[in-house]
Design a binder for these strands. Structure first.
Lengths: 147, 147
DNA sequence: CAAGCACTTTACGTTAACGTCAACCTCGTC
DNA sequence: GACGAGGTTGACGTTAACGTAAAGTGCTTG
Protein backbone atom coordinates (compact mmCIF):
# COMPACT_ATOMS: atom_id res chain seq x y z
CA UNK A 1 0.00 0.00 0.00
CA UNK A 2 2.16 2.81 -1.23
CA UNK A 3 -0.35 5.52 -0.78
CA UNK A 4 0.87 9.08 -1.04
CA UNK A 5 1.45 10.85 2.21
CA UNK A 6 -0.02 14.31 2.16
CA UNK A 7 2.90 16.65 1.52
CA UNK A 8 1.59 19.18 3.98
CA UNK A 9 0.37 17.22 6.95
CA UNK A 10 2.88 14.40 7.02
CA UNK A 11 5.48 14.57 9.72
CA UNK A 12 6.40 10.99 10.37
CA UNK A 13 4.93 8.94 13.16
CA UNK A 14 5.69 11.10 16.18
CA UNK A 15 5.19 14.81 16.16
CA UNK A 16 8.61 16.04 15.11
CA UNK A 17 9.45 19.73 15.21
CA UNK A 18 8.89 19.57 11.45
CA UNK A 19 11.67 22.09 10.94
CA UNK A 20 14.25 19.39 11.46
CA UNK A 21 12.36 16.61 9.79
CA UNK A 22 14.43 14.77 7.24
CA UNK A 23 13.27 12.96 4.16
CA UNK A 24 14.66 10.30 1.90
CA UNK A 25 14.16 10.61 -1.79
CA UNK A 26 11.54 7.88 -1.72
CA UNK A 27 9.53 9.62 0.96
CA UNK A 28 9.46 12.86 -0.93
CA UNK A 29 8.55 11.00 -4.08
CA UNK A 30 5.55 9.38 -2.43
CA UNK A 31 4.46 12.63 -0.84
CA UNK A 32 4.23 14.41 -4.15
CA UNK A 33 3.40 11.43 -6.28
CA UNK A 34 6.43 11.73 -8.49
CA UNK A 35 9.24 9.26 -9.06
CA UNK A 36 12.68 9.47 -7.47
CA UNK A 37 14.00 9.85 -10.98
CA UNK A 38 12.08 13.08 -11.31
CA UNK A 39 13.54 14.43 -8.09
CA UNK A 40 17.07 13.53 -9.14
CA UNK A 41 16.43 15.18 -12.44
CA UNK A 42 15.36 18.39 -10.76
CA UNK A 43 18.55 18.32 -8.78
CA UNK A 44 20.56 17.86 -11.94
CA UNK A 45 18.74 20.88 -13.35
CA UNK A 46 19.77 22.94 -10.38
CA UNK A 47 16.41 23.14 -8.68
CA UNK A 48 17.31 21.14 -5.62
CA UNK A 49 20.53 20.69 -3.69
CA UNK A 50 20.02 18.16 -0.92
CA UNK A 51 22.76 17.38 1.54
CA UNK A 52 24.49 14.05 1.36
CA UNK A 53 25.06 11.47 4.01
CA UNK A 54 27.60 9.24 2.43
CA UNK A 55 26.02 8.57 -0.89
CA UNK A 56 22.46 9.13 0.06
CA UNK A 57 20.56 12.30 -0.45
CA UNK A 58 19.00 13.85 2.63
CA UNK A 59 16.19 16.36 2.15
CA UNK A 60 14.98 18.91 4.64
CA UNK A 61 12.02 21.25 4.92
CA UNK A 62 13.56 23.74 2.56
CA UNK A 63 13.98 21.11 -0.10
CA UNK A 64 10.42 19.95 0.35
CA UNK A 65 9.11 23.45 -0.09
CA UNK A 66 11.21 23.95 -3.17
CA UNK A 67 9.90 20.79 -4.68
CA UNK A 68 6.37 21.87 -3.90
CA UNK A 69 6.90 25.23 -5.58
CA UNK A 70 8.53 23.57 -8.53
CA UNK A 71 5.63 21.21 -9.09
CA UNK A 72 3.16 24.03 -8.72
CA UNK A 73 5.04 26.00 -11.29
CA UNK A 74 4.94 23.04 -13.59
CA UNK A 75 1.20 22.67 -13.24
CA UNK A 76 0.98 26.26 -14.34
CA UNK A 77 2.98 25.50 -17.44
CA UNK A 78 6.29 27.04 -16.47
CA UNK A 79 9.41 25.33 -17.72
CA UNK A 80 11.99 24.09 -15.28
CA UNK A 81 14.29 26.78 -16.60
CA UNK A 82 11.84 29.53 -15.76
CA UNK A 83 11.25 28.11 -12.33
CA UNK A 84 14.96 27.93 -11.71
CA UNK A 85 15.38 31.56 -12.69
CA UNK A 86 13.12 32.69 -9.91
CA UNK A 87 14.15 30.16 -7.32
CA UNK A 88 17.86 30.69 -7.76
CA UNK A 89 17.67 34.45 -7.83
CA UNK A 90 15.59 34.26 -4.72
CA UNK A 91 18.43 32.47 -2.97
CA UNK A 92 21.04 34.81 -4.34
CA UNK A 93 19.00 37.81 -3.23
CA UNK A 94 20.54 38.73 0.12
CA UNK A 95 23.89 39.54 -1.45
CA UNK A 96 22.60 40.23 -4.91
CA UNK A 97 23.66 43.39 -6.68
CA UNK A 98 21.18 45.96 -7.89
CA UNK A 99 21.27 44.80 -11.49
CA UNK A 100 20.40 41.27 -10.52
CA UNK A 101 17.62 42.44 -8.28
CA UNK A 102 16.08 44.59 -10.96
CA UNK A 103 16.31 41.67 -13.31
CA UNK A 104 14.51 39.57 -10.73
CA UNK A 105 11.76 42.15 -10.46
CA UNK A 106 11.38 42.08 -14.21
CA UNK A 107 11.04 38.35 -14.24
CA UNK A 108 8.50 38.48 -11.46
CA UNK A 109 6.41 41.03 -13.32
CA UNK A 110 6.61 38.80 -16.32
CA UNK A 111 5.40 35.76 -14.46
CA UNK A 112 2.62 37.75 -12.93
CA UNK A 113 1.45 38.95 -16.31
CA UNK A 114 1.47 35.35 -17.36
CA UNK A 115 -0.72 34.40 -14.44
CA UNK A 116 -3.20 37.14 -15.19
CA UNK A 117 -3.57 35.94 -18.74
CA UNK A 118 -4.09 32.44 -17.46
CA UNK A 119 -6.84 33.67 -15.19
CA UNK A 120 -8.62 35.16 -18.14
CA UNK A 121 -8.03 31.99 -20.13
CA UNK A 122 -9.53 29.96 -17.35
CA UNK A 123 -12.58 32.20 -17.23
CA UNK A 124 -13.14 31.79 -20.95
CA UNK A 125 -12.39 28.12 -20.95
CA UNK A 126 -14.90 27.61 -18.17
CA UNK A 127 -17.60 29.25 -20.21
CA UNK A 128 -16.81 27.03 -23.16
CA UNK A 129 -16.94 23.96 -20.97
CA UNK A 130 -20.25 25.06 -19.50
CA UNK A 131 -21.60 25.54 -22.97
CA UNK A 132 -20.54 22.14 -24.22
CA UNK A 133 -21.81 20.61 -21.01
CA UNK A 134 -25.25 22.16 -21.48
CA UNK A 135 -25.55 21.02 -25.05
CA UNK A 136 -24.46 17.51 -24.18
CA UNK A 137 -27.06 17.27 -21.42
CA UNK A 138 -29.77 18.52 -23.72
CA UNK A 139 -28.92 15.98 -26.35
CA UNK A 140 -28.98 13.33 -23.65
CA UNK A 141 -32.44 14.46 -22.56
CA UNK A 142 -33.55 14.23 -26.14
CA UNK A 143 -32.29 10.69 -26.39
CA UNK A 144 -34.18 9.78 -23.27
CA UNK A 145 -37.54 10.95 -24.64
CA UNK A 146 -37.39 9.21 -27.99
CA UNK A 147 -37.66 5.57 -29.02
CA UNK B 1 6.06 44.90 -41.20
CA UNK B 2 4.55 41.58 -40.43
CA UNK B 3 2.69 42.70 -37.41
CA UNK B 4 0.08 40.34 -36.04
CA UNK B 5 -3.47 41.14 -36.95
CA UNK B 6 -5.71 40.94 -33.93
CA UNK B 7 -7.44 37.59 -34.21
CA UNK B 8 -10.73 39.01 -33.03
CA UNK B 9 -11.11 42.32 -34.77
CA UNK B 10 -9.52 41.54 -38.10
CA UNK B 11 -11.89 41.18 -40.98
CA UNK B 12 -9.88 42.21 -43.99
CA UNK B 13 -10.00 45.61 -45.57
CA UNK B 14 -13.69 45.94 -46.28
CA UNK B 15 -16.29 44.97 -43.73
CA UNK B 16 -17.02 41.40 -44.74
CA UNK B 17 -19.93 39.53 -43.20
CA UNK B 18 -17.22 37.86 -41.15
CA UNK B 19 -19.11 34.60 -41.25
CA UNK B 20 -17.94 34.01 -44.79
CA UNK B 21 -14.49 35.44 -44.36
CA UNK B 22 -11.77 33.13 -45.61
CA UNK B 23 -8.19 32.87 -44.44
CA UNK B 24 -4.97 31.53 -45.84
CA UNK B 25 -2.65 29.68 -43.57
CA UNK B 26 -0.30 32.62 -43.48
CA UNK B 27 -3.03 35.00 -42.40
CA UNK B 28 -4.09 32.78 -39.57
CA UNK B 29 -0.48 32.32 -38.56
CA UNK B 30 0.07 36.06 -38.31
CA UNK B 31 -3.17 36.56 -36.43
CA UNK B 32 -2.23 34.17 -33.68
CA UNK B 33 1.51 34.64 -33.87
CA UNK B 34 2.29 31.05 -34.65
CA UNK B 35 4.03 29.57 -37.69
CA UNK B 36 2.23 27.91 -40.59
CA UNK B 37 4.07 24.79 -39.60
CA UNK B 38 2.25 24.80 -36.28
CA UNK B 39 -1.11 25.09 -37.98
CA UNK B 40 -0.34 22.26 -40.35
CA UNK B 41 0.81 20.21 -37.42
CA UNK B 42 -2.47 20.79 -35.62
CA UNK B 43 -4.28 19.62 -38.71
CA UNK B 44 -2.16 16.52 -38.85
CA UNK B 45 -3.10 15.90 -35.23
CA UNK B 46 -6.76 16.10 -36.11
CA UNK B 47 -7.50 19.47 -34.54
CA UNK B 48 -8.24 21.31 -37.75
CA UNK B 49 -9.74 20.24 -41.05
CA UNK B 50 -9.67 23.14 -43.47
CA UNK B 51 -11.18 22.82 -46.91
CA UNK B 52 -8.92 22.67 -49.90
CA UNK B 53 -8.93 24.72 -53.02
CA UNK B 54 -6.64 22.76 -55.26
CA UNK B 55 -3.66 22.24 -53.01
CA UNK B 56 -4.15 25.20 -50.78
CA UNK B 57 -5.82 25.15 -47.44
CA UNK B 58 -8.74 27.47 -46.96
CA UNK B 59 -9.78 28.35 -43.44
CA UNK B 60 -13.11 29.73 -42.31
CA UNK B 61 -14.51 31.20 -39.13
CA UNK B 62 -15.00 27.82 -37.60
CA UNK B 63 -11.38 26.94 -38.15
CA UNK B 64 -10.25 30.23 -36.69
CA UNK B 65 -12.30 29.64 -33.57
CA UNK B 66 -10.94 26.16 -33.22
CA UNK B 67 -7.42 27.39 -33.48
CA UNK B 68 -8.16 30.02 -30.89
CA UNK B 69 -9.55 27.45 -28.49
CA UNK B 70 -6.64 25.15 -29.15
CA UNK B 71 -4.09 27.81 -28.34
CA UNK B 72 -5.98 28.80 -25.23
CA UNK B 73 -5.99 25.19 -24.14
CA UNK B 74 -2.28 25.05 -24.71
CA UNK B 75 -1.63 28.11 -22.61
CA UNK B 76 -3.45 26.29 -19.84
CA UNK B 77 -1.16 23.34 -20.21
CA UNK B 78 -3.48 20.90 -21.93
CA UNK B 79 -1.92 18.54 -24.41
CA UNK B 80 -3.06 18.53 -28.00
CA UNK B 81 -4.52 15.11 -27.36
CA UNK B 82 -6.67 16.38 -24.51
CA UNK B 83 -7.83 19.31 -26.55
CA UNK B 84 -8.73 17.05 -29.40
CA UNK B 85 -10.79 14.86 -27.11
CA UNK B 86 -13.09 17.71 -26.24
CA UNK B 87 -13.14 19.40 -29.61
CA UNK B 88 -13.85 16.26 -31.58
CA UNK B 89 -16.51 15.00 -29.22
CA UNK B 90 -18.11 18.38 -29.40
CA UNK B 91 -18.44 17.99 -33.13
CA UNK B 92 -19.67 14.44 -32.86
CA UNK B 93 -22.26 15.48 -30.29
CA UNK B 94 -25.42 15.99 -32.34
CA UNK B 95 -25.56 12.37 -33.39
CA UNK B 96 -23.55 10.99 -30.51
CA UNK B 97 -24.88 8.06 -28.55
CA UNK B 98 -25.51 8.21 -24.85
CA UNK B 99 -22.31 6.47 -23.91
CA UNK B 100 -20.21 8.96 -25.85
CA UNK B 101 -22.08 11.86 -24.33
CA UNK B 102 -21.60 10.61 -20.80
CA UNK B 103 -17.95 10.13 -21.56
CA UNK B 104 -17.82 13.72 -22.79
CA UNK B 105 -19.42 14.93 -19.57
CA UNK B 106 -16.79 13.03 -17.62
CA UNK B 107 -14.02 14.63 -19.57
CA UNK B 108 -15.54 18.05 -19.07
CA UNK B 109 -15.80 17.53 -15.32
CA UNK B 110 -12.19 16.45 -15.37
CA UNK B 111 -11.03 19.53 -17.20
CA UNK B 112 -13.02 21.71 -14.89
CA UNK B 113 -11.42 20.14 -11.85
CA UNK B 114 -8.12 20.84 -13.49
CA UNK B 115 -9.00 24.48 -13.94
CA UNK B 116 -10.07 24.83 -10.33
CA UNK B 117 -6.77 23.48 -9.15
CA UNK B 118 -4.99 25.88 -11.44
CA UNK B 119 -6.94 28.75 -9.94
CA UNK B 120 -5.72 27.76 -6.51
CA UNK B 121 -2.20 27.33 -7.84
CA UNK B 122 -2.33 30.80 -9.30
CA UNK B 123 -3.53 32.24 -6.04
CA UNK B 124 -0.66 30.63 -4.16
CA UNK B 125 1.88 31.45 -6.81
CA UNK B 126 0.82 35.06 -6.73
CA UNK B 127 1.44 35.23 -3.03
CA UNK B 128 4.89 33.76 -3.47
CA UNK B 129 5.70 36.24 -6.19
CA UNK B 130 4.47 39.10 -4.04
CA UNK B 131 6.66 37.88 -1.25
CA UNK B 132 9.79 37.62 -3.36
CA UNK B 133 8.99 40.97 -4.87
CA UNK B 134 8.77 42.63 -1.48
CA UNK B 135 12.02 41.19 -0.29
CA UNK B 136 13.80 42.19 -3.45
CA UNK B 137 12.56 45.77 -3.14
CA UNK B 138 13.66 45.93 0.45
CA UNK B 139 17.13 44.72 -0.38
CA UNK B 140 17.25 47.32 -3.13
CA UNK B 141 16.27 50.04 -0.68
CA UNK B 142 19.05 48.83 1.59
CA UNK B 143 21.57 49.08 -1.21
CA UNK B 144 20.46 52.60 -1.94
CA UNK B 145 21.17 53.82 1.60
CA UNK B 146 24.62 52.40 2.03
CA UNK B 147 27.99 53.27 0.53
C1' DC C 1 9.96 35.28 -69.07
C1' DA C 2 12.31 35.56 -64.93
C1' DA C 3 11.81 36.71 -60.26
C1' DG C 4 9.54 36.66 -56.13
C1' DC C 5 6.22 35.35 -53.02
C1' DA C 6 3.09 32.26 -50.70
C1' DC C 7 1.83 27.93 -50.60
C1' DT C 8 2.61 22.63 -50.75
C1' DT C 9 4.72 17.81 -49.14
C1' DT C 10 8.39 14.97 -47.26
C1' DA C 11 11.54 14.08 -44.05
C1' DC C 12 14.90 14.51 -40.78
C1' DG C 13 16.42 17.37 -36.48
C1' DT C 14 15.66 19.27 -31.85
C1' DT C 15 14.35 20.21 -27.03
C1' DA C 16 12.25 19.30 -22.55
C1' DA C 17 11.21 16.18 -19.18
C1' DC C 18 11.45 12.50 -17.79
C1' DG C 19 11.27 6.60 -18.25
C1' DT C 20 13.83 2.56 -18.20
C1' DC C 21 17.26 -0.44 -17.75
C1' DA C 22 21.87 -2.22 -15.81
C1' DA C 23 25.16 -2.72 -12.37
C1' DC C 24 26.44 -1.47 -8.09
C1' DC C 25 26.39 -0.31 -2.66
C1' DT C 26 24.41 -0.85 2.11
C1' DC C 27 21.59 -1.66 5.38
C1' DG C 28 18.58 -4.63 8.77
C1' DT C 29 17.15 -9.37 9.49
C1' DC C 30 16.12 -14.15 9.07
C1' DG D 1 25.71 -14.92 4.59
C1' DA D 2 22.03 -14.58 1.61
C1' DC D 3 18.33 -11.60 0.68
C1' DG D 4 15.12 -7.95 -0.01
C1' DA D 5 14.18 -3.03 0.24
C1' DG D 6 15.87 0.91 -0.32
C1' DG D 7 19.49 3.90 -2.29
C1' DT D 8 23.32 5.29 -6.07
C1' DT D 9 25.34 6.46 -10.90
C1' DG D 10 25.52 6.08 -15.80
C1' DA D 11 23.57 5.72 -20.20
C1' DC D 12 20.35 5.13 -23.55
C1' DG D 13 15.15 5.43 -24.97
C1' DT D 14 10.86 7.98 -25.54
C1' DT D 15 7.20 11.40 -26.31
C1' DA D 16 5.24 15.86 -27.52
C1' DA D 17 5.43 19.72 -30.21
C1' DC D 18 7.14 21.68 -33.15
C1' DG D 19 11.76 23.68 -36.28
C1' DT D 20 14.15 23.44 -40.44
C1' DA D 21 15.69 22.37 -44.89
C1' DA D 22 14.78 20.59 -49.61
C1' DA D 23 12.26 20.48 -53.65
C1' DG D 24 8.29 21.48 -56.09
C1' DT D 25 3.62 24.24 -57.61
C1' DG D 26 1.17 28.44 -58.98
C1' DC D 27 0.26 33.45 -59.36
C1' DT D 28 1.42 38.18 -60.61
C1' DT D 29 4.49 41.67 -61.40
C1' DG D 30 8.44 44.17 -63.39
Amino acid sequence: MTQPTSPDTASGQDALPRQHRQYTIGELARMFEVTPRTIRFYEQEGLLAPRREGQKRIYHEKDRVRLKLTLRGKRLGFSLGEIREVVMMYDAMPDGNARQLRRLLEILADKRANLERQLEDIRLMRMELDDVDHRAREVLRGLGHEA
